[in-house]
Simulated assay, not measured.
Amino acid sequence: MITAQHLTKRYGDHTAVEDVSFACAPGTVTGFLGPNGAGKSTTMRMICGLTPPTTGRATVAGVAYGRLPNPGREIGVLLDASAQHAGRTGREALALTAAVLGVERSRVDAMLKLVDLDPKKARRRVGDYSLGMRQRLGIAQALIGDPRVLMLDEPANGLDPEGIFWMRGLLRDFADRGGTVLLSSHLLREIEAVADRLVVIAGGRIVADGSKEELLARTGTLVRAESTTALRRALAVAGLPSQPASGGGALVDADAAAVGRAAAAAGVALVELRTADGAGLEELFLALTTGSATPTEPTDQHDRREATVA
């Protein structure tokens, strides 16, 4: 289980993350979503001890990451697939991880097979790997300690459609066997396909936290017009609250009849008008995050320096 309690991270006058609290329970995949710079990576780095929080705390299985006797046996972490020694082979990198964690050497072969890095690929140097191959190696490293918890930041980057499908099944199986998964990704359809719960962050603050079904069961009206500008103006004149939706449309907090009357009064030609129930994760994401202040997250190098000093 992962628990974040009132996590805040400030860099001088800049607040990257503010009062972030959520929990990831065993047996679930939690999708952690937000625009670039919203605070996702900073939050995940605080959970695994790479960035010390200004205030608040985070625990893994009830214990702060830094107090875990052998963290890799409790939580498998993949924050940056490119942060691997380019001169080592894939097998060497994985064997070193196994030695550090104190697991049997047989786990190396088992994990290479699991992530589809055959012996020929395993003998190649990591510097010659494609991004997708580095992602697979990173997932193998996260899993080699047989942890109960996984925390993955953008693990699907560089994977082809077959690889994304494979990863979805792997994470679903891990959770179904009682594991806890915290997954950050920009691939909203993949999050929607695999996640049980959603945590959405914008401007360094949590703006939504709940089960996928609860958050996607939105009411209101989804509307699109030939002119997006004219549509937004018509809705504003009618006093109908709205948020941008995918495809240049709007998600309106009103019934379809009211939206249709507003468009007709303004002479706006509509191309779509329907109830927004279950409109999808993309519409939810845009409605929750558009217009939010999204401070730029500090660089990893900055975080590493601070963590080292601390």
Score class of each variant (00 low, 15 high):
P161A: 03
R123Q: 09
V268N: 03
A236C: 11
L273C: 09
T308G: 14
L251R: 12
R105E: 06
L114I: 05
E213T: 13
G39S: 14
S130R: 02
M44A: 02
I201Q: 01
D109G: 06
R123W: 03
T59K: 04
P53T: 07
E282Q: 11
G158V: 08
L159P: 01
L188Y: 09
G163K: 03
Q5D: 11
E104H: 07
L281Q: 08
D116S: 14
L112D: 00
K120R: 14
R125K: 14
G260R: 11
I75S: 02
T296G: 12
T55S: 14
D116K: 14
A293Q: 15
D116G: 15
L50N: 05
R125T: 15
S185K: 05
L288K: 01
A236N: 05
R177E: 11
T8W: 11
A25K: 13
V223G: 07
D209H: 06
A254N: 02
W166A: 07
V103T: 00
T290A: 12
V149D: 05
T43Q: 07
Q135M: 11
V237E: 12
Y129C: 15
G12N: 10
G66L: 05
K113A: 13
L273G: 03
T28D: 08
L114N: 04
I164H: 03
G138I: 04
R197L: 11
H6W: 08
N36F: 05
T97A: 01
G34Q: 02
G178D: 09
G249L: 06
V115L: 03
R67S: 13
S106K: 03
L150D: 01
A293N: 14
L240N: 02
G145P: 08
G291Y: 01
L143R: 02
Q243N: 15
R197V: 12
L137E: 07
F285N: 06
E306W: 12
V29E: 04
R224Y: 02
I2S: 00
R233K: 15
A83D: 13
T275G: 11
E92W: 02
G260A: 11
R232T: 15
V17K: 04
G127V: 13
G56F: 07
A93M: 08
T308C: 14
G27I: 07
G39P: 00
A4K: 06
D146A: 01
A95S: 14
T3F: 08
L198P: 00
G291Q: 09
L150Y: 08
V194E: 02
R172W: 04
R304T: 15
T28H: 08
V29I: 15
